[in-house]
Design a protein around this nucleic acid. Structure first.
Length: 426
RNA sequence: GGAGAGGUGGCCGAGUGGUCGAAGGCGCAGCACUGGAAAUGCUGUAUAGGGGCAACUCUAUCGAGGGUUCGAAUCCCUCCCUCUCCGCCA
């Protein structure tokens, strides 16, 4: 959420900055609401102050001997009643304005960071770096075919269990998924991330706090009888972990690593990536999350991204880092690096991690502040996948495929997986 | 699901209509004492939004919302949540 003071006092700046995302906005209506709300609040507090004075005076008069039913007290009581009526009217107006203001503010995306490159679409994203040697050979298979051949997963039966875009992992496939989860969590925990296993059903306030609501309700699965949704990413429960808290500055940064299943409706992607592990309603992800001091958030963003990259490097998977242009940024993000892993069979780089700083956007929605000396300030939140498990498996299968049909795994996984390669099951 | 208890500041905990943003304690910070520390003493210590260069000041907040009243942490209503016991259950 944007600062309503900024919208009130400098709407031109907001329009200009959101314009960098490709939005053409007219904020005059919103600014008017914000101003009216502010004015009303002032009138209201003046009236309330007067009412408080009257109330106190009645008490004083009575305690110094005036008759509670006497004329002077009666007069004050009538004055109090008149004030109360006026307050009631203003209060109602103020509440409805505040609600409208908040509703509209919640629908506005974050301002892009000054560091984010200008651009209108994916095509304007900037490749920052490449790591590793992509395998480019004729005849490499895509992961879906490899997985099927090795019996790692069953898509058809998953439709019976749930519906399309779900997958059931079997045998070595299930074991590899589990190995990857443990491997990634351990790797990050060694660097000082605190491991978290949060609820994966989250309430409306949590989804609003991280920015998925109110705008993206159609992307999440919702429970019919409760105020609960299936979380689309661990970013949601992790942001909510400290909602409405004031954290002492010396405790920052707080760094968490969480494994969760993630659930997304993938509305509007019919027909895309229908095979394999790339786009599913349920997928698994290890997520990195920082709560940090605003002064350190740019450095933290780089560190978080490096921590995500270190997983790919440990798994010996070639990747590139892309910096998103302003037009391609997600709703809550101020600046984002995507990591794209090389899919040797598909012959393409594919997003496997998205590392964003949200600056104070989520902190304001979630009321997460820190205390430094006197007074509190909003802190900054950052998140990044470290990594998406399914896509990691896909990359490993395609990268490690051998002429004999087996798949060689990187040494880092041997102890977790219990073998050095995947082979056809007897 | 049934029965009961309860939600007050960072924490514990008092407070059943009047000047209460709220006693006391703990914790924390500063100062004093000390060679240094412990102990002790003093002072300070919520959040949000306004106004003011500032000292400071106004408003709101005692789970949430509504009501009674000149005045509500305190009385009434509704809702939410937590805890205990029973049932069920991994």
């Amino acid at each position: 959420m944007l600062d309503q003071r900024l919208v009130r006092q400098n709407p031109e700046l907001v329009v200009e900055q959101l314009g960098r995302r490709g939005l053409k906005l007219d904020l005059t209506g919103l600014q008017l609401i914000a101003q009216q709300q502010r004015d009303l609040e002032e009138q209201l507090s003046n009236l309330q102050a007067e009412g408080n004075r009257v109330g106190k005076e009645v008490g004083q008069r009575i305690s110094t001997g005036a008759s509670p039913a006497g004329p002077e007290v009666k007069e004050l009581r009538e004055l109090g009643n008149r004030l109360k009526q006026q307050v009631a009217v203003l209060d109602e107006e103020e509440k409805s304005l505040s609600a409208r203001l908040r509703e509209q503010l919640l629908g506005l995306p974050n301002l892009p960071s000054a560091l984010s490159p200008e651009g209108v679409s994916e095509a304007d994203n900037i490749e920052v770096k490449r790591w590793g040697e992509p395998r480019i050979e004729m005849g490499l298979q895509e992961h879906g075919a490899i997985a099927e051949r090795l019996g790692l997963l069953d898509t058809e039966r998953s439709v019976r269990i749930a519906q399309s875009r779900f997958v059931t992992l079997l045998g070595q496939g299930a074991r590899l998924e589990r190995a990857l989860i443990s491997f990634m969590i351990d790797l990050h925990a060694r660097k000082g991330y605190r491991e978290v296993l949060p609820p994966i059903l989250v309430n409306t306030a949590s989804l609003t706090g991280s920015g998925q609501l109110p705008k993206f309700a159609e992307e999440s699965f919702r429970c019919a009888d409760d105020d609960l949704w299936l979380t689309p990413t661990a970013e949601v429960p992790l942001t909510a972990l400290h909602r409405d808290e004031v954290i002492p500055a010396e405790q920052l940064p707080l760094r968490y690593v969480a494994f969760t299943p993630c659930f997304r409706r993938e509305a509007g992607s019919y027909g895309r990536d229908t095979k394999g592990l790339i786009r599913l309603h349920q997928f698994h992800k290890v997520e990195l999350y920082w709560f940090c001091h605003p002064q350190h958030s740019d450095a933290a963003h780089e560190q978080l991204t490096r921590d995500a990259e270190s997983v790919l490097e440990a798994l010996e998977l070639p990747y590139r880092r892309i910096e998103l242009c302003t037009g391609d940024l997600g709703f809550s993000a101020a600046r984002t690096f995507d990591l794209e892993v090389w899919l040797a069979g598909a012959g393409t780089y594919r997003e496997i991690s998205s590392c964003s700083t949200c600056a104070e956007f989520q902190a304001r929605r979630s009321a997460i502040r820190f205390k430094e000396g006197k007074g509190t300030q909003l802190l900054h939140t950052l998140n990044g996948s470290g990594l998406a498990i399914g896509r990691t498996m896909a990359a490993l299968l395609e990268h490690g495929q051998q002429a004999d049909g087996s798949v060689a795994l990187p040494a880092a996984l041997w102890s977790y997986f219990g073998a050095e390669r995947l082979t056809a099951e007897a």
